[in-house]
Design a protein around this nucleic acid. Structure first.
Length: 219
DNA sequence: GCCAACGTTGGC
DNA sequence: GCCAACGTTGGC
């Protein structure tokens, strides 16, 4: 149980299932070339230090439960801290398991009017068991997961700050397309190359570039 | 272990 | 609300 009362976190219910129970960056990384982790690799496995985490800022009902959880909701909590529960995708889970306390993550608004990067959070607690997998009443209950061998993990995140301006997906996409042509920092960014992942890694270059946009004129 | 069918994500 | 992309399931 997380320190704070948990708000519902809006991550999409990424269909639970089995298969890739591997620990480590992505057993689906077979597909991906070890695209430059961060200059930091061990045994060919990229080590990431920055993240992007998606949540839905607008109301949407899943089994009668509102999964809305935007950055304002995180900011409004007593400690501005929340667990990031409900992730039910192995790749996303594995990325969460790699997160280290103090690392930065973008809070990304998805499935809404204006998708994009809303702010910054810090990893406040490293991966631990997501108790909602055992809660029959929870939207993300997983009947196949047993307490003696839990499948799903979560981290705690703490609100850091809002972006100086909201950086919309459309703008990131323009840069991505440009960078694909000119080799710029967003050419391989997971947001577009692995669009459906709700927890994504960013290289330092990708993170810095996106962050730099907040003080530039909208494109 | 292949792969078609199915279900979900999430931009548009 | 549509639907492309893609992860998961399960028959074989």
């Amino acid at each position: 149980m997380p320190p704070k009362k948990r708000p519902r976190v809006g991550k999409r219910s990424e269909s639970s299932g089995k298969s890739d129970d591997a620990v480590g960056p992505s057993a689906a990384g077979r597909k991906r070339k070890a695209a430059a982790g961060d200059g930091c690799e061990s045994a060919g496995v990229p080590v990431y230090s920055h993240w992007l985490m998606k949540s839905e800022p607008e109301s949407r009902f899943e089994n009668g439960v509102d999964v809305k959880f935007g950055i304002e909701d995180l900011k409004a909590l007593p400690d501005q801290t929340s667990c990031w529960d409900g992730v039910r995708n192995y790749q996303a889970r594995n990325f969460m398991r790699q997160m280290k306390e103090g690392q930065l993550a973008f809070f990304y608004h998805s499935n809404c009017k204006e998708p994009g990067v809303a702010g910054l959070m810090k990893i406040a607690k490293e991966a631990y068991v997501d108790h909602t997998q055992f809660d029959k009443k929870d939207v993300h209950y997983d009947v196949s997961s047993k307490p003696d061998n839990p499948k799903w993990s979560m981290v705690d995140v703490r609100f850091q700050r809002m972006m100086k301006r909201f950086v919309p997906l459309s703008e990131l996409k323009k840069h991505h397309l440009q960078h694909r042509a000119d080799g710029g920092p967003l050419k391989d960014v997971a947001l577009f190359t692995r669009a459906r992942l709700s927890v994504q890694p960013l290289t330092s270059e990708e993170f810095d570039f996106i962050l730099s946009l907040e003080v530039k004129e909208p494109h």
